[in-house]
Design a binder for these strands. Structure first.
Lengths: 338, 338
DNA sequence: CTGAAAGCGCTTACAG
DNA sequence: CTGAAAGCGCTTACAG
């Protein structure tokens, strides 16, 4: 491909070849109505002249921008967290695959509070939004009122919005089953169960496993990890220590392992610990954590497909789409039955 | 602000008010040629009708998209690295601040090899590029040949390209000085000095400090950390252990601390270790690492300002812009003089 | 201060 | 198979 400094348009190609720009458009877009011979010549000339499509013009004519806005609340991308940023990376790749571009919008707490929509919305730069990470209900509602489609990724509210979720419930259910199969019966859950829907669902999966195995749920075995604003707090461990801890995420599991070690407990000999997400903290912890891997690729791909379809057909509905995770077995669980 | 489903254009506002769309455009853009009274009425009506600017139309007319492409080589955003992703976050915020949007392009090794330009280039979706993270020379050259401006961020080649860099040289020079002030004279450098320009410059800063203090550079004290493809390799420690290790980045320092501990060395009692970047690994390591903090905000802001200016005036030149880092003192350095 | 005209670069629907 | 006309929604330069 030649690289040419000045802008070359379809009309330039048309002039050079003595045809009309309509014909050039048809040829370049592989539309009917051009002879094969002419199409070939046009494409060749376009390449020679270093032609690049002006998407803006196409977009304005068609009413599509071929951009999707991805909104991530700022609190989810602190210095020590990269989970959502990695997620975003998968989304960007998936969008690219379908010929779309992603525009990242980092939502500040202030904008969220004041129900401020992203600038890309006000400037009509995108065909729809993927909301990555839980926002408050009011903000979520706001996005349902705009005329652009939105898909929630990795969270949901009670509203009727299309969303793509890890099967938190089922994943934690299976993981807890695994602990029970290893002989554990005193199992604590670590996480603020009023904080996010993910944590809540993971908790419920844990609870279902207990129920099925006739193990009573003990209040002192529900250990909070963060305050209402999502800020991590010190763990208050129960008097009677459990043999295993089910943590709502790897980062919390990582910190718990630390705390336990400082208190003189060995992991996994004295206490088993499991996490969720399979993020960087899972392999940073020692021992490495048994956890549930979130399938970011598949979730991203689904969310992208959904938002693209929805931008073309506003009546498309998908509901809650669950994507199964996968247990990764590592070294943080001790078998205590023989 | 009202939220309206159907699209409302300037002409709709004009009709409602019995004026022309030219006047509406002027009023909304705060341009001269409208009475204050009318301007006010137009803005009010626009708000009432839920008007949103169609940037595509504006962009096409003006020839600007108000988008900037940010290119990150895929190899820099693996599962355990979030440095560049966090950088990207700062860039996105800075662009937003100037009314621009960022479009992320993740450059695969394959596309880099085949000199494939990003789709956003071919589709004219951006006004310029910020290249975040070192690409090979051929690819870098390619970007200098296109008619869009480009700014390199956090790396440079010998070519004459505008770039924003951490002052790697000076930062490592100061950090090494600090070690020497603490009494160290046997100081090793950890990093493949043929790998990237950042590592090379950091190495040279280290070397300058040695030179100034008349400490000879010893070959066995240059310890490689990665192969030519950037893949981490096992450290080959020297027979005569140094008292301090200067690592080219925190992640490598983190791994080195691990290795040292496994070999029975205590950090910092037996060996001091320092890193660079102040990323997540600096505080993950035990002891926490003394390191140099990269000023991502300022670097991002500079790169953004530069690319915006350059997109408006192709003749603007900035050269190599260095941004000073800051030493963060933590617990990985032992004072060995009394 | 206000507006009619032209044009940005493309695509769609229709006519030949 | 090929192309003239109209239009997407805005802005600029100019005329009144």
């Amino acid at each position: 491909m030649n690289i040419v400094k000045q802008r070359v348009t379809m009309r330039d190609i048309a002039r050079k070849l003595g045809v009309s720009s309509v014909t050039v458009s048809k040829a370049l877009n592989d539309k009917e109505g051009v002879s094969e011979e002419l199409r070939k010549k046009i494409k060749e000339t376009a390449r020679e002249m270093g032609y690049r499509l002006n998407t803006l013009a196409k977009a304005m004519k068609e009413g599509y921008s071929y951009n999707v806005g991805v909104v991530i609340p700022e609190r989810f991308i602190g210095d020590t967290q990269s989970f959502y940023l990695r997620f975003y990376q998968h989304i960007a790749k998936a969008l690219d695959h379908y010929g779309y571009c992603s525009i990242l919008h980092i939502l500040t707490a202030e904008d969220e509070e004041q129900l401020q929509l992203p600038r890309v919305y006000n400037e009509r730069k995108v065909d729809g939004f993927i909301m990555l990470g839980q926002v408050n209900k009011e903000y979520a509602s706001l996005f349902q009122q705009i005329e652009l489609p939105v898909v929630f990724l990795d969270f949901y509210h009670d509203q009727d919005v299309d969303c793509v979720l890890t099967d938190n419930f089922f994943g934690m259910y299976e993981l807890t089953n695994h602990l029970i199969q290893c002989g554990h019966r005193e199992i604590a859950f670590v996480g603020n169960i009023y904080s996010t829907s993910s944590i809540q669902d993971r908790f419920l999966g844990y609870y279902k496993s207990l129920l099925e195995h006739r193990i009573p749920l003990r209040e002192e075995y529900i250990i909070s990890d963060r305050d209402e604003k999502g800020k991590y707090i010190d763990f208050v461990l129960p008097k009677n220590m459990p043999t295993a801890f089910v943590c709502n995420c790897d980062q919390v599991a990582y910190h718990l392992v630390h705390t336990l070690k400082e208190l003189g407990y060995r992991v996994p000999e004295d206490c088993s610990v499991v996490g969720f997400d399979n993020d960087i903290y899972a392999t940073l912890a020692e021992p490495n954590l048994t956890t549930v891997q979130v399938n970011m690729e598949e979730m991203s791909d689904l969310a992208v497909k959904m938002i693209i379809e929805k931008s073309k057909d506003r009546n498309k509905k998908y509901g809650r789409v669950l994507v199964k995770g996968q247990i990764i077995y590592r070294d943080s669980v001790q078998r205590i039955n023989d």
